[in-house]
């Protein structure tokens, strides 16, 4: 565990807490993509299947449970909590998220380190996480006035990705044979999606115009 990894995890945790805060206290999920949240629930469910088979640390198991619990409860709130569901931008959140799941599954079946059930699903979760933010970014570009909490949620998620890349660079130089191409490329693609988004978000901010 290095400082970048810990900072990345804490940023990730903060992003989830910001979203839960918005849903719990304001009873609103305006500007939040249910498609993206469902994809994250699938990501964590498929990645953390090893929670029963391999133990890394109390910290790891605890965080896995937090991410599983929070992602499924966010989906539950957005789908079934009356007050929260009423604020959901259903007409705007139209990204076909199943068109992301299927290619990721095919890619995981073709490109993986070991052809076992757990390993293929773990790889699938990496590919899916890389693109899971897309419905959220599309929704954001369609929504004219995004509130601070939604903006902070996405900003924190982007920060988490950036810190994980620093973590991999650190581990590459400090741990022998730490080479994980699949993890790195999927993580890099994910970070580039955020970087592209932040670039246009910044242009919109300084230009005072809408995102094209």
């Amino acid at each position: 565990m290095n400082i970048f990894r810990l900072a990345g995890d804490m940023t990730h945790l903060a992003s989830v807490l910001v979203l839960l805060l918005k849903i719990h206290t304001i009873k609103s999920c305006a500007g939040v993509s249910l498609r993206t949240q469902e994809l994250y629930a699938i990501v964590f469910a498929t990645r953390y299947l090893d929670i029963f088979t391999s133990f890394v640390s109390v910290y790891n198991t605890f965080m896995k449970l937090v991410f599983l619990g929070s992602s499924f409860s966010i989906v539950w709130y957005m789908r079934y909590h009356k007050a929260v569901h009423r604020t959901y931008d259903r007409e705007q959140d139209t990204f076909r998220h199943w068109f992301l799941v299927l290619p990721c599954l095919v890619l995981a079946l073709l490109i993986h380190e070991k052809f076992t059930f757990l390993e293929v699903l773990w790889t699938f979760s990496l590919y899916l996480e890389a693109v899971a933010i897309l419905p959220q970014l599309v929704l954001l570009q369609r929504t004219r006035n995004i509130d601070n909490l939604t903006g902070q949620y996405i900003f924190l998620l982007g920060g988490y990705r950036g810190l994980y890349i620093l973590n991999w660079i650190y581990r590459y130089f400090t741990e022998p044979h730490f080479v994980h191409w699949i993890t790195w490329i999927a993580g890099l693609v994910q970070t580039l999606l955020y970087a592209d988004f932040f670039y246009y978000y910044f242009l919109r901010f300084i230009g005072g115009r809408g995102v094209e």
Partner: peptide, 10 residues
């Protein structure tokens, strides 16, 4: 070769 595993990450 032994080395760190990305499986210990979240």
């Amino acid at each position: 070769p032994r080395g760190g595993s990305a499986k210990d990450e979240l």
